[in-house]
């Protein structure tokens, strides 16, 4: 779990370089101004690359906060 979270933080820091590491777990589309549709697409691509998964288009709606995405990864039973 802890490793999954740190790997996700790594993805976020690539897409949102302006966020400090301790801000990332609280990040969401409402708190991060730069989180637009392009950022979502980039985040999805980085996650697919880093976790070796395919995100279904309908799951993109869940990509609205760090917490939601972490829960999504846990539900996909991604190995730590």
């Amino acid at each position: 779990m802890a490793d999954l979270q740190s790997r996700l933080i790594d993805c976020f820091s690539g897409v949102f370089p302006m966020l400090a590491a301790d801000e990332i777990p609280r990040a969401s589309t409402t708190t991060v101004e730069a989180w637009d549709s392009i950022a979502t697409a980039t985040l999805m691509a980085v996650m697919e690359e880093q976790f070796g998964i395919q995100v279904a288009p309908e799951d993109l709606d869940r990509f609205v906060s760090f917490r939601e995405i972490l829960a999504y990864l846990q539900s996909r039973e991604i190995a730590d």
């Binding site: 993805c11 820091s13 690539g14 897409v15 370089p17 980039t42 980085v46 690359e49 880093q50």
Partner: peptide
């Protein structure tokens, strides 16, 4: 080059 690597280079 991986995408995350490219993002880091640009950061």
């Amino acid at each position: 080059m991986k995408l995350v690597e490219a993002l880091k280079i640009l950061r």
